[in-house]
């Protein structure tokens, strides 16, 4: 089951055709992009199904059961339904802004996968600024939220869009700072280096007391807020008055926002697994299995939060981030720096 072997074989084939190197590279990267895109579409579909089944079992009911074995085809049916829906563009919207908002959201969600290591040697491109690149890309989502809010020409959508933008911006800071605490230890921004510095289980950053667990928990909370999930899901809450930035979207545009949310959830879980849980390290099983297992574990924890906790009010949310999480994250960073340069706990 050597996936890297398959890719190397295909690369050899390409070189064997005798094209100039530039073309070989372009075709290789295009192919990698298509593979990753396909993989992510399947993952998004799977996660939607998993969310519905998990929520059902938490609530002692069954979830989708009719479309395939335990309803595995449900998301496919939902996607087809959304494709067939009428794509309504309201009359007085700002056309360009309205049109490009979901696309930017979707693209930003997918671009982060350039540097995520799916396994040993399974990374599209090992940039030496890996984690910084991801953090920069996830900031793109804020632009798309603001564009959606403004472009909908609807005061409620604008309010909702601004609120979600405020939420995402204020939770970026603790997320970055908690990631920094790990980077201080690793010494490099490259994702592959981060994984390789966690070769043994006691070296995983989640176990490196005392800064590891605090950084991990801060990261999980900030990640939940970044992806607009309960308890921070004001933008999506149906029970609140302001319906959120995607109130005017229907059909495929809405599907793009929706899928982008699930892809984002997978992204933050993948980053968490890479940084804190050891990435693709693990005995006996192939490395990509370990990666998928750890990522899905974090995804399940995010779903668990959603189905247990009530929602935070907007001002509580901001208060929590600025008055609690950020100080904790900064203190943690100082602690991590101190631990690294004093040489204690440096195994």
């Amino acid at each position: 089951m050597e996936i890297t072997g398959i890719f190397e074989y295909l690369y050899e084939l390409l070189i064997g055709t005798g094209l100039p190197q530039v073309w070989v590279d372009i075709i290789a990267y295009a192919f990698a992009a298509v593979v990753v895109f396909g993989f992510l579409c399947i993952v998004a579909l799977f996660l939607v199904w998993l969310e519905r089944k998990a929520s059902a079992h938490f609530q002692q009911r069954l979830g989708p059961m009719r479309t395939g074995w335990h309803g595995w085809r449900q998301t496919v049916h939902d996607a087809i339904k959304l494709l067939r829906k009428e794509d309504i563009t309201p009359y007085a919207v700002d056309r360009n802004v309205f049109y490009w908002a979901p696309i930017i959201c979707f693209v930003a969600a997918f671009m982060a996968y350039l540097v995520i290591p799916f396994g040993d040697g399974l990374i599209v491109s090992d940039l030496n600024i890996g984690i910084l690149f991801i953090l920069g890309i996830t900031t793109f989502t804020i632009i798309s939220l603001l564009m959606a809010g403004w472009g909908s020409n609807n005061k409620y959508a604008l309010l909702g869009g601004m609120r979600s933008a405020a939420q995402v911006v204020s939770y970026e800071v603790p997320m970055v700072v908690s990631i920094l605490a790990v980077i201080v230890f690793v010494g490099s921004l490259s994702m592959v280096d981060i994984v390789q510095s966690q070769a043994k289980i006691y070296q995983w950053y989640v176990f490196r007391m005392p800064f590891g667990p605090i950084a991990f928990i801060t990261y999980i909370i900030a990640a939940t807020a970044e992806t607009n999930r309960t308890p921070f899901d004001i933008p999506e809450a149906e029970q609140e008055l302001v319906a959120g930035f995607n109130v005017e979207y229907s059909g495929m545009k809405f599907a793009m926002f929706f899928l982008a949310e699930f892809v984002n959830m997978f992204t933050v879980s993948a980053i968490g697994a890479t940084l804190f849980l050891g990435g693709w390290q693990g005995p006996w099983l192939p490395s990509w299995m370990w990666f998928m297992g750890k990522t899905l574990f974090l995804v399940c924890i995010l779903m668990w939060f959603r189905w247990t906790y009530p929602r935070l009010r907007v001002d509580h949310l901001m208060e929590f981030s600025w008055k609690f999480l950020i100080p904790v994250a900064f203190v943690n960073l100082i602690l991590a720096g101190f631990m690294k340069y004093s040489g204690w706990f440096n195994w």
Partner: peptide
């Protein structure tokens, strides 16, 4: 009440 506040699970438990 719990549904309005966003905790979606106690709703199902209460109705059970």
């Amino acid at each position: 009440t719990s549904l309005d506040l966003g905790a979606l699970t106690p709703f199902l438990y209460a109705f059970r």
